[in-house]
């Protein structure tokens, strides 16, 4: 089953502002393995070869925080929680 189809099953209330941010995009150029792209179950982080940037699909975020830990060498991901009641809401969990 494709990730997009799975994420479509989940219930999100999308906040108007992103709760995830790459602090300094240029720092990602130094990062060899792009660890943030390997640890996220929702595939929030994607390396875009054209723009040489990490694209952050924060709308799909499950708020688990692994990205921040994966980036601890550069400490370049800023995460705070979405507004109360926004973000993902599990029905089963």
């Amino acid at each position: 089953m494709k990730l997009e189809d799975k994420l479509f099953l989940d219930q999100y209330k999308v906040d108007s502002e992103p709760h995830l941010k790459i602090k300094i995009p240029d720092v990602c150029l130094e990062c060899e393995h792009k660890q943030c792209t390997w640890v996220c179950p929702a595939g929030v982080y994607k390396w875009d070869e054209d723009s040489k940037k990490i694209i952050v699909g924060w709308e799909n975020c499950m708020e688990m925080g692994a990205c921040v830990v994966a980036c601890n060498e550069y400490d370049n991901i800023e995460m705070h929680y979405p507004k109360g009641g926004y973000g993902i809401s599990y029905k089963f969990g």
């Binding site: 089953m1 799975k6 994420l7 099953l9 989940d10 996220c40 179950p41 929702a42 499950m62 688990m64 925080g65 692994a66 830990v69 599990y90 029905k91 089963f92 969990g93």
Partner: peptide, 8 residues
């Protein structure tokens, strides 16, 4: 599949 979830 009814739901997909992730956690640390």
């Amino acid at each position: 599949t009814l739901e997909y979830s992730g956690h640390m």
